[in-house]
Simulated assay, not measured.
Amino acid sequence: MVTRTALRGTLSFKGGARSVNIIGNRRIWLTCSGILMLIFIGSIIFRGFNLGIDFTGGTTIEVPLPNAVTAPEVEEMLNVPGLEDLNLNSAVIQPFSRLDEGGNTRYGVLIKTRLVDGEFLSDAVVEKTVAQLESQLGISINRESLAVEKVGPVIGADLTRNTIWAIIIATLGILIYVSLRFEFMSGLAGVIALVHDVLFVLGVFSLLGQEVNSNFVAAVLTVIGYSINDTIVIFDRVRENLRARKKGETFDELVNDSVIQTFRRSVNTSVTTILAVMALFLLGGRSLKEFTFAMIIGMVAGSYSTIFIASPLWVVMRNWQDKRAAAKRGAPATR
């Protein structure tokens, strides 16, 4: 059995685990995060987001092709006079492949364009787009196999509303789960850390003008699950240490020891996961850029908040709760 003393010795730098006083320096971490949050909230309010077609509405053209193509190839083919309405700078070009009922691989490309002056792509522009692909690839495309979908702003508004509800429901579910497994204060601290992570990702995307689409929503929900999982590992160690709490040991010291004991595990897990997602960001297709970029930003924020936000906040709330209870009893609070 590995004792807490042994763990302290393993992770100590010079003066033992408590020489690394993460909890004692909580004002620094919380102040830095607070300043960042104000910057991100300001950007969200005044700059807003670069909303993708999923939210703003637009036209989607699914073109079947005999062979595989890449997004840059298709973009180069369509970057010609007469197709300016495609607005390729903001359009999403996504090659795909799928198996049909006979088990044969079918190739194609999905072209998503924004509304042009509040209008969908005209049938004439759609026809020019298909004709240009035919000319460049030397093929004939069956018009009956085309799939043209027009997504209006109303559908985009529904997606926005559903996205907000998905985040709220996921957050409330996590709050209930963590509160039942540990205590309400730890659940509240964990949820505040999640809000920090979500605001971090939203703020970075707002500042950089990165496109926010349905892939981004999936990334945010994934980050929420990833971040709380890491937080629960630390909270679980706190609960174990509470059972073996030494006489005179404060809650601040106990949580600080717990964070240090799980520090290497948290950092190693985060680094290896981020490296994997980084490879996907660098080597994956254009359609995965927003998803993987949001994941990288969210994982960095989640790794930070797990150690420097969630645990210190739990200490602050627990100490406040103890002081309040002690005040009612007329006895001094034990930190």
Rank of each mutant, 00 (worst) to 15 (best):
V148N: 06
R47I: 13
Q136F: 12
G302Y: 06
D85Y: 02
P332A: 14
S258V: 08
N79D: 09
Y304R: 14
V69W: 10
V271W: 00
L121D: 05
F184V: 14
W320G: 15
S186K: 15
L65D: 01
G190V: 10
R27E: 04
P95Y: 00
I307E: 04
R47Y: 03
I297N: 02
T3P: 04
I176S: 04
S303G: 10
W29G: 04
G42D: 04
A17Y: 08
G118F: 06
A193V: 10
A218R: 03
I260T: 11
I28T: 13
D257H: 15
T262E: 12
I111A: 04
S19R: 15
P81R: 12
G284V: 00
G209K: 09
S12K: 15
S311A: 08
R26T: 05
Y107G: 08
I164M: 13
T222N: 02
Q94T: 03
T171K: 07
A124G: 04
S258R: 14
I234E: 01
I164G: 14
T163H: 05
L180W: 13
F235D: 12
V80D: 07
T31S: 13
L110N: 01
N67C: 06
K246C: 02
L11F: 13
V223Y: 01
I167F: 08
S12T: 14
T306K: 07
E73I: 02
T113N: 05
G52E: 03
G284M: 00
L38P: 06
L110V: 03
I155G: 05
K246I: 04
K328A: 13
N142F: 12
A310N: 12
Y304A: 11
T113M: 03
M278D: 00
V212Q: 06
A244E: 08
F13E: 15
T250Q: 06
Y304L: 14
L88K: 02
V191A: 09
W314M: 14
G48M: 04
K328M: 15
T3F: 05
D252I: 11
G330E: 11
T160M: 05
G58H: 09
G302Q: 09
T262L: 10
I228C: 04
K247I: 11
G156C: 09
I307M: 07
V316T: 15
I168D: 03
L313F: 10
V277P: 00
M278Q: 00
I232K: 03
Q136L: 02
R243F: 02
V74R: 03
V316Y: 12
L221C: 11
V238D: 05
K289S: 01
I41D: 05
F46M: 06
L121W: 08
S140Y: 13
T306P: 01
N162D: 09
F235Y: 11
E75T: 04
A331P: 06
N50K: 10
K246W: 01
T129H: 07
R181S: 09
N50M: 08
R335E: 08
A219R: 00
P72R: 00
G187Y: 12
S33V: 11
F96W: 02
F216D: 06
V191I: 11
